[in-house]
Design a binder for these strands. Structure first.
Length: 585
DNA sequence: GCCGTTTTCGGCCCGACTGTTTTCAGTCG
């Protein structure tokens, strides 16, 4: 069993223990262990074999034993027994806002409620309201929560949430009462999906700001409208929270509500180690009663400086080593959007794109790019009007003619998104593929293979002499479809060994390969290309979402192929295709 | 369940809000 499967089980154990009313710190230890495992650099098999698992901070005797058992046997007796002792319906009740382990347990014990259906009935007939510690409002809230669960339970793509957030933030900044305003939360950290929007405002006069906020266009429901906090829900189901704090607290609050939780915990522990207490209200000596003696800061940078840290950008605040790096002054110089000088992997009307070769070139030129590249589908993607060898070569001629015409200053590279067939071979003739500037190899068919098969299949495609880049590594569609199982470490190693780029597919629904893998992969030497996978000219903008992934993955411009100049890209492509005269020009 | 220059037991980040209560428990971020 691999790292991420085991991490899933540790998280499940934590949830089950929560329902059982276990010590919260024990629960956290399992969650912490799961996270550690997910971000573990080293090979799990080696650590187990060498008995070095115990050396990982956060793994004690109990976790080492459980991880080892799972890794070696694929199952865990402790987990099976635990699972059998908890009714599954109770776990799903945790998803209802306002319900935690204690209440669920009480309702189960007193009323025998073991499913959301039963819970709904018990709320409707007054049984829940009659319970000690419960009441009418609690029952009503649960009913609303059950109703909303399906409609609004979904997270939202960062891209979509950002579109909603932009005008709100702009509007807040325009209000005369507002001194400082920012978005916060996972939106600011640029996670690929976000649960809700958070806004923080520094002001001495909260009321008009709150009133403006709840009166926004598209607000369907106001769920809170208080002095320091208001919450609204938009038609799309997206929820937004606004907090207004006195200006001197603004940067503390901004940092606090930007998170992540793990990052905040680590920051507070760091403050404590210096005799200070950190919260959204300020940073004060630990034995002071109130925050009147808090440090005064005029930026987030100063907050980090107070704790002897280099400034940590929001994207990096995931509690995965950023504080240690900031302490040593070893944070990376993150990729900037303006460093991108062109893009690969884009579709035209030749396959399933909406814009012609010329329209796309015009748009790329308008973006100020030095180059862009086509990568229409190959014939195995029949539903997408994929190109066969003949049509590929025909398109190549068109592209050469367009470049020769001098009509645009932006150079067009001729590529293909070639399907990786079930056995790992490519969908087009090698001679065809070698005639092109570059090849993006991607999986679109036979996606239900085992992890082992899929890994071998991808590696075989990577080893093909014509392959330049690997397309969307796992094929996931965020919020909709899990990616296929694949051993990422092995694929990354193969890509490095064969001088193949692994793309960051910047389509906001894909963002694949995931940001969590990039730091380690780049350290090993993997290059990426941020590819918009554009199916129309406006999709070129997706490249920004890809830059977010790169930044969250600790990448610098040096790790990103499409920060190279036109001449450098031509040279790199020519290395794989030495026989082609035209590439030397 | 983890951890340790205050170390093998007793801590573990901190505060607001809500709804239920007459002083607090549960939940949330």
């Amino acid at each position: 069993m691999n790292k991420s499967d085991i991490a899933d089980i540790l998280n499940e154990i934590a949830t089950l223990l929560e329902i059982k009313g276990e010590n919260p710190f024990k629960i956290r230890a399992y969650q912490n262990g799961a996270r550690k495992l997910e971000t573990l650099d080293a090979d799990l098999g080696e650590l187990v074999a060498e008995g070095k698992l115990k050396e990982v901070a956060g793994f004690g005797d109990a976790l080492v034993q459980k991880i080892t058992e799972l890794h070696e046997t694929g199952s865990l007796e402790f987990f099976e027994k635990l699972k059998a002792s908890v009714e599954p319906g109770l776990v799903s009740m945790l998803e209802i806002p306002g319900l935690g382990a204690k209440k669920i347990k009480a309702m189960h014990k007193e009323l025998g409620i073991a499913s959301i259906e039963e819970l709904k009935t018990a709320c409707e007939n007054g049984e829940v309201a009659a319970l000690k510690g419960f009441g009418k409002k609690t029952a009503e809230k649960i009913l609303v929560g059950i109703e909303n669960r399906e409609a609004y339970g979904m997270r939202h793509l960062w891209w979509d949430a950002n579109e909603v957030a932009k005008p709100i933030l702009e509007g807040l900044k325009q209000l005369p009462e507002v001194e400082e305003a920012s978005h916060a939360g996972s939106l600011r950290r640029k996670r690929d999906t976000v649960g809700d929007l958070d806004f923080i405002v520094g002001s001495r006069d909260a009321k008009p700001i709150m009133d403006w906020f709840v009166g926004q266009e598209g607000v369907k429901e106001v769920t809170a409208h208080g002095e320091t906090k208001s919450s609204v829900r938009f038609d799309s189901g997206l929820q937004a929270d606004l907090r207004v704090v006195p200006p001197e607290q603004f940067y503390f609050a901004l940092h606090h509500f930007t998170g992540s939780k793990d990052h905040n915990v680590a920051m507070r522990q760091r403050a404590l180690a210096r005799g200070m207490s950190l919260s959204e209200w300020g940073l004060k000596p630990v034995d002071d009663e109130d925050f009147s003696n808090s440090k005064v800061i005029a930026s987030e940078e100063e907050l980090f400086r107070c704790l002897d840290l280099e400034y940590i950008l929001p994207e990096l605040r995931e509690g995965s080593g950023e504080i240690e790096a900031a302490e040593k002054g070893k944070l990376p110089e993150l990729l900037k959007p303006e460093a991108i000088r062109g893009v690969f992997h884009n579709h035209t009307t030749a396959s399933d794109g909406r814009c012609s070769l010329e329209e796309m070139t015009e748009a790329a030129q308008a973006k100020g790019w030095e180059y862009w590249g086509t990568a229409d589908h190959s014939k195995a993607s029949f539903q997408a009007n994929g190109l066969d060898d003949e049509r590929v070569l025909e398109q190549l001629k068109q592209i050469e003619a367009l470049n020769a015409s001098g009509k645009f200053s932006t150079h067009v590279f001729a590529g293909i998104e070639c399907d990786i067939l079930g056995d790992g071979s490519l969908d087009l003739e090698e001679s065809t593929l070698m005639a092109l500037d570059y090849v993006v190899a991607s999986v679109h068919i036979s996606m239900s293979q085992s992890e082992d098969e899929m890994t071998k299949r991808l590696i075989r495609a990577i080893e093909h002499p014509a392959t330049t880049m690997l397309g969307h590594l796992t094929g996931r569609i965020l919020l909709k479809r899990e990616g296929y199982k694949v051993d990422v470490a092995k694929v990354v190693d193969a890509a490095i060994a064969n001088d193949v780029i692994v793309e960051i597919n910047a389509n906001p629904r894909r963002l694949d390969m995931d940001w969590r893998f990039w730091r380690r992969a780049a350290e090993k030497g993997l290059m990426t290309s941020i590819n918009p996978d554009a199916h129309r000219a406006e999709h070129f903008d997706f490249v920004d979402a890809g830059v977010n992934v790169a930044r969250k993955g600790w990448l610098s411009a040096a790790n990103v192929f499409n920060t190279l100049s036109l001449a450098e890209v031509k040279e790199a492509f020519a290395k794989k295709r030495p026989a082609l005269e035209r590439l030397k020009s």
